[in-house]
Amino acid sequence: MNKSELIETLAQETNLPFREADSITNTILEAMTNTLASGDSIEIRGFGSFVVKEYDSYQGRNPKTGQKIKVPPKKLPFFKVGKELRERVDKGK
C-alpha cells in the first residue's frame, strides 16, 4: 500500500472527502516528523514507538575502494513494533 491508497482508504472508511483525509494524514505525518526532528520520541499504543538514536562520528571504510573515511555523527529513527501488532503480524503468516 502507498500513501495515496492509504488516504483513499481513510476517506472511504470515515466517509470524509478525499481532501479532508489527505489533510488529516499529512497533519499526522507532519506531527510525527517534527517530533522526531526535535529528537523526541513517539509512542502509539497498539502500534509501536519511534525513538531517535544518536551516533558519534567514527572511522569507516568505503567498501568499494577500501579507502578510510570519517563518518560524521548522525541521528537515525528506530521503530519498535508494539506487542499487539507484533503478535497479530506474526499470526498472519
Binding site: 481513510l10 472508511e13 470515515t14 499526522i28 505525518l29 501488532l85 497479530r88 503480524v89 498472519g92
Partner: peptide
C-alpha cells in the same frame, strides 16, 4: 475517530503481510 481509522488501516495492511510505503516518511516492511 479519524486517528483510530488511520491506525487501523495501517495495522490491517501490515497484518495482511503487505508493505506500506509512505513517501517522505518511510517504508514499513513485513
Amino acid at each position: 475517530e479519524a486517528v483510530e481509522a488511520l491506525l487501523k488501516i495501517v495495522k490491517d495492511c501490515l497484518i495482511e503481510g503487505e508493505d506500506l510505503l509512505i513517501s517522505g516518511f518511510g517504508k514499513f516492511n513485513v
